[in-house]
Amino acid sequence: MKLRVNGSEHEVTAAADMPLLWVLRDLIGLTGTKFGCGIAQCGACTVHLDGAPVRSCVTPASAAEGKAITTIEGLSADGSHPVQRAWTEIDVVQCGYCQSGQIMSAVALLAAKPDPSDADIDAAMSGNICRCGTYQRVRAAVHKAAELAKS
């Protein structure tokens, strides 16, 4: 099948129902998207299909055909996306494993709601588990990113 990831075309040989997560990680070699639970409970595998956040661990790769797939690697070449800059300013990360998914969820939230309330952040980000408990800083960084995106 043909997949367009971060603007590049990839031809992969995979069963239609192979989750997009494993196609990205094991066949295409983009390992920034993480495996956390395999059942859409933790959000570590969040990527965008045509801008909408999906849990790639339960999304068949065939469902992504013909769509623009964006992964953490496609957000910016140098960490300059407003969400990444906010993450840097607030010093959000700890172990860092969940942060690709956190950032992809935050980017999608801000695209839909450029000025999210705390309740919006609760609704959009509570599907992303962080065992290091960086939630307070994730929340602060989403607000910060909203500011940075405007300036």
Binding site: T31, G32, I72, G79, T88, D91, V93, Y97, Q99, S100
Partner: peptide
């Protein structure tokens, strides 16, 4: 001091064990 591992961890570049890949590696 701000964390020195942030740049890798916000771009997906940070190498975790699960990300190890090389020619001939099986899972």
């Amino acid at each position: 001091s701000r964390r020195l591992d942030t740049p890798e961890k916000i771009t997906g570049r940070a190498g975790f064990g699960i990300d190890v890949r090389f020619e001939g590696l099986l899972t």
